[in-house]
Amino acid sequence: MKDDEKRFLIIDDEPDMCWALEQILKHNDIVSSTASNAGEALALLETNRFRFQMAFVDAKLPDIEGLELARLIRKNNPYIAIVMISGFFYKDGDEVKEALKDGTISAFIAKPFNNNEIIKLLSCC
């Protein structure tokens, strides 16, 4: 990996969702890594410290809730932009509003999403 290369982490237990996000990122010259659960994600973050600029985190993972994972990521990686992606929560829901307000997450995207919603977020990193 080049030092100036953008690298994003996709954390979702749905392989099709990981694939879709990977394709969007790839077409925008961004390298991505995927994890299907929190354990895999935290291991990738630990071994690639300071390498990820953004993490897409599914709200419902098999081993932990997405917002709890976002808190763990934020605690150890305060520099990373965290985007919650969910078909379960809504942007105007209390939990999401609080997480946006306190900086746990940087943005929220509802599933199913429009590719342009993802592309718009890429400009921040």
Rank of each mutant, 00 (worst) to 15 (best):
F56R: 10
K6V: 06
A43Y: 13
E14Q: 14
V31L: 12
P112C: 08
I73F: 05
F108H: 00
L69F: 04
N48R: 15
I80G: 01
H27W: 12
G87F: 02
F108I: 00
A41E: 06
I10E: 00
S106P: 00
P62D: 05
V57P: 01
L72D: 04
T104K: 03
L42K: 13
A20M: 11
G103E: 04
A43N: 13
D4L: 14
F108N: 00
V31N: 08
F108S: 00
T34F: 07
S86V: 06
M17W: 03
A99K: 01
N37S: 11
A38K: 04
A55V: 15
I64Q: 11
I73Q: 02
Y79K: 15
S33F: 13
K6Y: 08
D94I: 05
S32A: 10
N37A: 09
G39P: 06
F88I: 04
D94N: 03
H27Y: 12
I73G: 02
T34K: 13
N116Y: 12
I64K: 14
S106K: 06
P112S: 10
A20T: 11
P62K: 11
E46H: 15
N115Q: 10
A81I: 09
N116M: 14
S106M: 02
P112L: 10
I10L: 08
L42Q: 12
L69T: 04
V57I: 15
L9K: 07
K97L: 03
I73V: 15
A41G: 12
R49N: 08
T104E: 01
F88D: 02
A43P: 04
L72K: 14
G39E: 13
Y90G: 08
D4C: 12
I80T: 05
G103F: 10
N28C: 09
Y79H: 15
N37D: 10
F113I: 09
G87T: 06
E40F: 11
K91R: 12
S86W: 00
S86I: 05
D16T: 10
N77L: 07
R49K: 15
A38E: 01
L100M: 03
A99C: 03
K111N: 06
G66N: 05
G87M: 03
E40M: 15
L61K: 08
R49I: 12
L100F: 02
F108C: 00
D92L: 05
A20S: 13
A110Q: 07
E14T: 14
M54V: 11
R7E: 07
S106I: 03
N37T: 07
D102I: 09
